[in-house]
Computed example of a mutant assay.
Amino acid sequence: MWPFRTSSVVCLACGTELSQSMAREYDKYGDRWDRANKTFEHLCKGCHSDLCPQPRGELEKLLGELEAGNPSQAEFLSRYVATVDDRYGPLEES
Rank of each mutant, 00 (worst) to 15 (best):
P71Y: 04
G46Q: 12
K45W: 00
C44T: 03
G89V: 11
C14A: 14
E41V: 09
C14S: 11
L51I: 12
F76H: 11
G15D: 00
M22Y: 10
R79M: 13
S7R: 10
D27R: 05
Q20I: 01
A82W: 02
T39R: 09
A68D: 09
L91F: 14
C11M: 01
R32W: 09
V81H: 15
L18C: 04
N37M: 12
D34M: 04
R32V: 13
Q20C: 09
C14V: 04
V84K: 02
S8N: 10
K45H: 02
M22Q: 14
C11T: 00
E25R: 15
D27M: 05
Q73A: 12
R32A: 07
C44D: 05
F76I: 06
F76P: 12
R56K: 07
S72H: 07
L77Q: 14
E75W: 03
E41C: 00
F4G: 05
V10K: 00
Q20F: 05
R5C: 04
V9D: 00
L18T: 01
E92A: 13
G30N: 07
R56F: 03
Y26R: 10
Q73K: 14
S19Q: 07
T83K: 14
S21F: 06
S8G: 05
S94E: 14
L62V: 15
G15N: 09
E25D: 08
M1F: 03
L18H: 01
G64D: 15
L63Q: 11
N70I: 13
L66E: 10
D50S: 07
T39V: 04
E41F: 03
Y26W: 15
L91A: 15
A68P: 00
T39K: 05
F40G: 00
Q73T: 14
D50P: 03
T39Q: 14
V84F: 00
R35P: 07
L18Q: 01
G30E: 03
P3S: 14
R87M: 06
Q54N: 03
L43N: 06
H48W: 03
C14M: 10
Y80E: 08
E67V: 02
M22P: 01
A23K: 00
W2A: 11
L62D: 05
E75V: 13
S78A: 14
D85N: 15
E93Q: 10
E60C: 02
M1N: 03
S49T: 07
E93M: 08
A82C: 07
C47Y: 08
A74V: 13
W33E: 13
R35C: 11
G69K: 11
E75L: 12
G69I: 11
P90W: 10
D85H: 14
F4P: 02
R87V: 05
R56E: 01
L43C: 02
Y26L: 08
R35T: 13
A68V: 08
P90V: 12
F4V: 09
S78G: 12
G69F: 02
G69Q: 00
P71A: 00
L91Q: 13
H48G: 06
S94M: 14
D85C: 12
F40S: 02
V10I: 04
L77W: 12
S72P: 08
G57R: 06
R87I: 05
S94R: 12
C11G: 02
D27A: 15
E25C: 09
T6L: 10
E92H: 15
S78L: 14
S19L: 01
L51G: 01
F4W: 04
C14H: 05
Q54D: 12
L66P: 08
N70Y: 13
P53M: 06
P90K: 10
G57D: 00
F40T: 07
A23W: 03
